[in-house]
Computed example of a mutant assay.
Amino acid sequence: MAERTLAEDGGASDGIDTFAFPVESSICGVGMQVGPMGTGPGWHGGAPLERVHRIDFHVVMFFTDGPVRHMVDFAEYEATAGDVLWIRPGQVHRFTTTGEYRGTVLAMQPGFLPRATVEATGLYRYDLPPLLRPGPAQLDALRAALAQLRGEYEDTTTLPLSLHTAVLRHSLSAFLLRLAYLAASSAEGARQRSDTTFTLFRDAVEKGFATNHSVSAYAEGLGYSRRTLVRAVRAATGDTPKAFIDKRVVLEAKRLLAHTDLPIGRVGVAVGFPDAANFSKFFHQHTDTTPAAFRAELR
């Protein structure tokens, strides 16, 4: 795939750098790219293999070989032939330097597809795991849809640009609808989608975790009893509501420690701990390391 450039995230006041999607590197300048993974640096856009980084676009890696270990939001996933890894905008990730990436990689710029298609394909379902394992029939259908998409992307001679782009959007939508169905029909995804109580809680935590760590406060705000909330969250995730909140706080702390030079005390404030000592104690309890040691390990 075409080489990308590292640009500062213009909307970020915390200094987080991100790899931006380079429209100018795409064939005909469209808002997507699709091509082979391989040993050269081009397919991953020059991103540092050994360092965590962030992207502002979607990446879907379709593996034809493996195993390959890949970190997404500080969780390790092992992908092999037939697996699909879906990384969404804003997620941090890191390539492995010990495995060989083989297969096809798709990159898509937010805004390339219409809003209705974005909603239908669940492009921002951050609650779903990034690693997908399609069954034989699903795998064949995904391969066919991806091959069709790649063929349309590389065919720049049979249609004028406006029609070429329109056909690409339709082919991309067909592929993503299949992929989204696979993600949503997994056991975990199905449980989370069907449980309205958990979905409302998850969304509330996403909006309020930086200032609100209280299970009772979330329950009251959503109009549920604490017992109802505990049952719903445990059924969807296997965790208690408190553990779910804490995991989200830890993830955000890790992101800030990895991607910014904010003092550790300010990282703590950003995730709801005005006292630096309390933040360090909390972080150590959940990671078995200190914030300073975690940051040093990544740099």
Rank of each mutant, 00 (worst) to 15 (best):
L131D: 01
E76W: 12
H70L: 06
V68F: 01
T157M: 13
V84E: 01
T80W: 10
S25R: 15
E24F: 11
P136N: 12
L131P: 02
D73E: 15
D140T: 14
E152A: 15
R143W: 11
S25G: 15
D73G: 01
V30P: 01
P36F: 05
A81R: 13
V68H: 04
V118S: 09
M61Y: 05
H58K: 10
R150I: 03
L49V: 13
R54F: 00
S25Y: 01
L132G: 02
P136K: 12
Q138G: 11
V72I: 14
E152N: 12
Q109R: 15
H70I: 04
G46N: 03
G135M: 09
R125Q: 15
P22E: 15
F95L: 09
G122K: 08
G103Y: 05
G31L: 07
L128N: 09
T64E: 15
I87R: 08
R54N: 02
G40K: 08
E154L: 12
P129R: 12
S26N: 08
Q91M: 10
V23F: 13
A144G: 11
V118K: 05
C28E: 14
F112G: 04
G111R: 12
S25I: 01
D56S: 13
D73K: 00
P110R: 14
Q148A: 15
E154M: 09
P114S: 05
T104P: 03
W86A: 11
Y101V: 07
L131T: 00
G31F: 08
L131W: 03
P130G: 05
A141F: 12
P89Q: 06
Y77S: 00
R133Y: 01
E119K: 11
A81D: 12
I27P: 03
E50W: 07
G35Q: 10
H44M: 09
F74L: 05
R125L: 11
L128H: 10
L49W: 00
F112V: 05
V52Q: 10
G122T: 04
P36Y: 10
R102A: 09
G31I: 03
